[in-house]
Design a protein around this nucleic acid. Structure first.
Lengths: 127, 127
DNA sequence: TATTGCTTTAGAGCGCACTCCAAGGTATAC
DNA sequence: GTATACCTTGGAGTGCGCTCTAAAGCAATA
């Protein structure tokens, strides 16, 4: 017997707003959630992992459009594992690329910070 | 004597669209550009470095709002170097944070990719 | 002189990813 | 019963960062 939780509880667990949870369901990122007799959503514990993975994809810059592609494949079952892997691999390459770019730009920004420090020292000497 | 260039040339050099160049000027990220007798913009070579630095800030996820703050400080001259350094240092911390998060999420995604590979192998054996 | 291709402006439009609202139903506590 | 705190929906609104349009003027070439 799986524990159920309300949308507010799930929002708190998954670190998303209730608005976002409903939005994700509406656009098909999440399959229709079970309802109780009053029509309230009843999230299952098993939904947590999926929402967390979605959040990971978002945090790493995947667009909702691509997340949707992934979600659709996932819903189609085991036949799509190759395609899903390829999608993730493409995303991984993008992340790696962006990390490289970040690293480089970080170095330039650090260089600039050091220049400012020098300028500050000179201002102190003159002042 | 500095070389001048048109907005289209600058767009090509800076890797931004002419729309974006005008937009950046309009919102004050870039100070009013010199004009020739016909009212056309004449970018100076010295504008390139600033536009490239702005692009670096954007690429590293700084909001236009914060870039504007930085630009305003810069326009106020040497008196603001400390504040500018602090702003960049705060931004650097954010970049470092995001890189850490990317690194972690990348690991999870890689883990998932490897799981898919295993599944694929099993499917092949059974198939 | 006409065409093509650049430039100008104010202002509108767009795509994204939410975020919120109004109007109503349900659950719990007092 | 009633207060309040949650839940539902469709649809509108928001903030961001551009991106484009219309209407006009300027420049270079045939």
């Amino acid at each position: 017997m799986e524990r159920k939780c309300t949308i507010a509880q799930m929002a708190s667990i998954a670190g998303l707003s209730v608005h976002t949870l409903r939005y994700y369901e509406r656009i098909g990122l999440v399959q229709p959630v079970q309802r109780n007799s009053s029509g309230y959503r009843e999230y299952a514990e098993s939904d947590i992992a999926w929402l967390e993975f979605l959040t990971r994809l978002r945090l790493t810059g995947m667009s909702i459009r691509d997340m949707k592609r992934y979600a659709v494949l996932r819903n189609q079952g085991p036949a799509t594992v190759i395609e899903r892997r390829q999608l993730l691999e493409a995303h991984r390459r993008e992340i790696e690329c962006r990390m490289e770019s970040l690293k480089h730009n970080l170095a330039v920004i650090t260089y600039k910070i050091d220049l400012y420090k020098k300028t500050e020292e000179e201002q102190n000497e003159r002042g």
